[in-house]
Nucleic acid binder design. Structure first.
Lengths: 127, 127
DNA sequence: GCTATGATTCGCCACATAACGAATTAATAA
DNA sequence: TTATTAATTCGTTATGTGGCGAATCATAGC
């Protein structure tokens, strides 16, 4: 840890200090998700969700992968997530019975069931 | 954990999302401190420091004790700090070599050396 | 090339928050 | 009681942040 430590730490804690971003992290426990899937669960504007995802990524709390037009986000694996995992574990234990989180998980199941393509099409038509 | 969990969690993460409050938490590792000592190290207005301390306390990250005119703050002990300790440990490891934190610790030694009474008197006269 | 489309960036607005000094509170000391 | 004093609360200001829609970017498909 060098003099960047504080900057990095605050980037993380600030990233965690928002309910939508916490909800996203909890959702990601189930595996990687594309942006439109996160939009569907949070029911926020695409631009808003994209911003949240970029903040989480900049904080090292998410990794991303581009596949064609789709962007997939997931929890960081391996050594990349060493500093992150304890935080996520702590969050998970704090929130495992939180209604919002449980509800999001349920909605996630529905969303993962239909493929992203048809999901985005529905979104374009306005739900 | 009930439906309050998210509120509590966000109160904690928001409390951690500020550099002055992180500095305060790191300082408290050395033991309980009165407000004027924290003021001395952070070199911020008393009202500002008081606010930070109240935010940390409301988040469960600090306990307080009143002794005469002095108010002492410390890290929560025993079962009260069960959810807090892992976070503080994580913070401590992230920041143990952070210049600001090291410098604060050094200043703390000087501050603890002189008694609070004379410290506050000096502050009143404007450093 | 052109169009369609998933995602991001930009500009804006409303609201939250950190900082200060002044006023207030609570407790000691005169 | 009155004055002093450590801390807090209040009011104000400047800055930061979350939200949206419009515009833009990047890739797939025609």
């Amino acid at each position: 840890m060098n003099s960047e430590a504080m900057r990095l730490t605050l980037r993380m804690t600030k990233a965690l200090a928002d309910i939508q971003r916490v909800r996203i992290l909890m959702m990601m426990g189930a595996g990687e998700l594309c942006v439109c899937q996160v939009i569907e669960v949070l029911t926020l504007a695409p631009s808003t969700v994209s911003k949240h995802l970029s903040i989480l990524t900049a904080a090292g709390l998410l990794d991303s992968r581009k596949a064609g037009r789709w962007m997939y986000y997931r929890l960081p694996e391996g050594s990349a997530g060493e500093w992150v995992r304890p935080v996520l574990k702590w969050l998970g234990e704090m929130l495992k019975n939180e209604p919002v989180v449980v509800q999001d998980a349920k909605k996630m199941k529905m969303v993962v069931a239909c493929d992203p393509q048809s999901l985005c099409r529905r979104q374009r038509r306005g739900e």
